[in-house]
């Protein structure tokens, strides 16, 4: 019976502390009853292999022991969908742009100083550390919410206060107006209709390469967006034709921004700084600072924005619903008839 004792010892390891002896005594009794029964029917003592077969049927020791443990989890099923939603949000709105900008900036710095790979490794190291800390923080917050959620938190809800069905093909008026104001202002400034106030003794002008090759494409880009935003303000539904026009502008934007980034990464500058009282080092530092600002802005606002816009508008052109990353959490985007109704 040494084998049975070894088996029970292995089970004992995983049992709740205050019930160990009691449970082991009961399981021991069951096993001995089984062995006694078989020995009675065979008319002889069981061999080691036959006892082993009984134990095998009983189950792996840890699995047997775990069934006596209370069911435990860090984040319960009620809170889990919201936890996943927040994790997705953190990844999409924070880590995605942060990673792209981090890589771009580090490569930019490395291109002007040391090797690329060292800089990339540094940014990846920082990325994983930041990602790990964020996941841990979000998990701890939701574990606390799950543990200390007030009674009735899930019962006190009013169906009448549920948000309206979100229609991804409807264009909010506020969005059209803000786009119109933004692109309108940039168009006028780019066309030279007005100038930003200048600092005495400091003149910042677009570099010759920008004036020569990028003036018309950028003007077309910003005027085109302003025109679409103006139409959207009065006809707030996406149509295939308008979606196609904006997709074309998004594609142009990707190309223009890509070309500007190439200039930036190869050490070129977007601006010419004229300041008689500054030394050459200060002027170069100002140009570099300006280029860094452009890198962040271009990447964040343009490259990512144009790429996402292109994907969404291309889907609209194909008659598909724009992507809705939070669908899993709130089930939005279930109306697929909106664009079809318009066409």
């Amino acid at each position: 019976m040494e084998l049975v004792d070894r088996y029970l010892q292995a089970i004992k390891f995983g049992l709740p502390k205050n019930q160990k002896q009691d449970i082991i005594a009961e399981l021991s009794e069951d096993l001995h009853s089984q062995i006694q029964d078989q020995e009675g029917s065979l008319g002889r003592a069981l061999k080691q292999e036959e006892i082993a077969a009984i134990l095998k049927k009983f189950g792996p020791p840890m699995q047997v022991a775990l069934r006596y443990q209370p069911q435990r989890y860090l984040i319960g099923p009620q809170v889990f969908p919201m936890y996943l939603f927040v994790l997705k949000l953190v990844w999409m709105c924070f880590f995605g742009p942060w990673f792209v900008i981090g890589v771009a900036l580090d490569i930019f710095v490395a291109a002007n100083h040391s090797g690329h790979y060292g800089a990339l490794t540094t940014v990846l190291d920082r990325f994983w550390l930041a990602a790990l800390i964020n996941v841990i923080v979000v998990t701890i917050v939701f574990a606390l919410i799950d543990r200390y959620q007030p009674d009735g938190i899930w019962q006190n809800w009013n169906p009448l206060k549920l948000p309206k069905i979100r229609d991804t093909n409807r264009i909010p008026w506020s969005s059209s107006i803000s786009e119109l104001a933004w692109y309108g202002m940039i168009s006028l400034w780019w066309a030279g209709a007005f100038h930003f106030p200048s600092i005495p003794g400091l003149t910042i002008q677009p570099a010759p390469v920008i004036s020569r090759f990028f003036f018309w494409p950028i003007l077309l880009l910003v005027v085109g967006h302003a025109a679409i935003a103006a139409v959207n303000a009065f006809r707030p539904w996406w149509t295939r034709k308008r979606a196609f026009l904006r997709a074309a502008l998004d594609a142009l934007g990707l190309v223009v921004v890509g070309a500007l980034l190439t200039i930036c990464f190869t050490g070129g500058s977007f601006v010419t700084v004229n300041a008689p009282q500054l030394s050459m080092d200060d002027i170069l530092a100002t140009q570099k600072w300006f280029a860094w600002g452009w890198v962040v802005m271009l990447l964040l606002w343009c490259e990512i924005g144009y790429f996402v816009g292109l994907v969404q508008d291309a889907r609209r052109v194909m008659g598909l619903q724009p992507l809705c990353p939070w669908r899993g959490a709130f089930g939005c985007g279930s109306r697929s008839h909106a664009l079809g109704r318009q066409l």
Binding site: D30, S33, F58, G59, V64
Partner: peptide, 27 residues
């Protein structure tokens, strides 16, 4: 009944149950 005879009685009536399920359920 005690555990082993309970399990046998259930099996005889066509309701087989393994030890790993029965004993935690009894508790």
């Amino acid at each position: 009944r005690y555990g082993y005879t309970l399990r046998k009685a259930l099996a005889e009536d066509g309701m087989e149950i393994d030890e790993g399920t029965l004993y935690p359920l009894l508790r």
